[in-house]
Design a protein around this nucleic acid. Structure first.
Lengths: 242, 242
DNA sequence: TATAATTTGTTCGTATGTATT
DNA sequence: AAATACATACGAACAAATTAT
């Protein structure tokens, strides 16, 4: 194993273990092999391997018990559906008990070129911006920034704050139904803000979904950029029966 | 900025710059501020900043010219459509001139539980495995592992090698049309094999798409796991008009 | 054209973190 | 626990290429 890549050896090993565990090629029975075995398998010193395990214990991926062994903390990935009927609030309801969204901040601002394009507005048009955080089982899952046309939805932030839901927020403006038009999915390292909001450690990955929702007439009503914690979430695209 | 996180300072800075550039908050005019300015802005020594820039130059994100400055190499992301009619070969045709797929290896093996489930076969049933690499403009874009029912498609690897296309390979078995049934999208750090095949540097991210294709009767005919270079690819999900 | 200013590239030295033995 | 080797980070100065005056 080489160093010099800018990533310490213990973190490289930690990443490999995290991945092998999630792929099921390591600790499939819930238990990791002894440190000596692992250190030989990865070709590193036991000290280095222990640093990696310590980091994963800190992250909540593993649990080490003196004299017994190291165990996998079961953490199934949340599967987030993406379809024409995608709703941010309903997608994960069945998979987790305690799920909630938190409104971190909101403001009225001028639409950037990107936002204006997504909402079909002129650049600089007034838009409402919502910053929200979603948690499942007491742990952060996603961090979203949404924009709405401020002329059509004045005070949308308040409507959202009262109802606690995007869908219910729209209902107070007479919108009974809406559809997901498009979703662009990419992935990148979490930035400083994401690291703080989503309580991640350096080097963590976020899945980024840029989505446009439209009303029944096909007019854009929401432009959103959601950052999902890649370790905890997968996106499920169903394309059958069209 | 802290060290000791297991990720070198220069790499943290590199990640920040890469992201700021792609977000347009840095080098929007195609030119980066001088090293002295950047090193002060990020609160690091000029050496450290230069290491970060060197890594991004190596990656192809930036270009440095002595005496002139450091410039942004425009590299638009390839947008890969995901829909019921998704074809691996046709998706990117319009966005790039030189695109090709390379068959790295193939074998007949016994279906693992995961593969068997995807193809609707019994665990241990014989399957054909294809290892392929896709390039666009001389650079690796994706690395895929595909499985096919060996009883229904004996010698599929040869059919693929001759035609150079999944779609044409199916045609030699009388399958004129097929559909993408489902796609699971996740993201992770590239593993050692991905780093080598996709010519990436440590810490790089891959978008993983696990897909099932079905024939017109709805029977699974292909189970595939594709790793896309996250820096170069975004997945585009269209969900309108259902 | 000549010179100064700007900007990237290189070379010292020193201190600390990381990994192995 | 200690010794050793390498990678990372900072500081200062100088060299080389380009641009502005």
């Amino acid at each position: 194993m080489t160093r010099k890549s800018g990533v310490a050896l213990w973190r490289q090993i930690a990443d490999q273990i995290r991945q092998a565990v999630s792929a099921g090629t390591l600790g499939a029975d819930g238990r990791l092999p002894p440190e000596m075995v692992l250190s030989e398998r990865f070709g590193v010193n036991r000290h280095t391997l222990r640093s990696a395990i310590a980091a994963l214990v800190q992250e909540g991926v593993l649990r080490a018990e003196q004299g017994r062994g190291t165990f996998v903390e079961s953490r199934q990935k949340l599967s987030y559906p993406i379809s024409a009927r995608t709703r941010f609030s309903t997608g994960l309801r069945s998979q987790t008990r305690d799920r909630r969204s938190i409104l971190l901040a909101h403001a009225v601002e001028q639409a950037s070129q990107r936002v204006a394009e997504g909402l079909g507005l002129a650049e600089g048009a007034p838009v409402v911006r919502l910053e929200t955080l979603s948690e499942a089982d007491e742990r952060p899952v996603s961090r979203a920034t949404s924009w709405f046309d401020a002329e059509r939805f004045p005070g949308y932030a308040e409507a959202y704050a009262e109802t606690g839901s995007i869908t219910l927020g729209f209902q107070s403006y007479g919108i009974e139904d809406y559809f997901r038009k498009s979703t662009l999915v990419s992935a990148r390292h979490a930035d400083a803000a994401d690291l703080a909001d989503l309580k991640l450690s350096a080097g963590a990955i976020v899945l980024v979904a840029v989505a446009v929702n439209v009303d029944t007439q096909g007019l854009p009503i929401q432009y959103a950029e959601t950052r999902f914690v890649a370790d905890r979430v997968e996106l499920s695209v169903s394309t059958e029966a069209q």
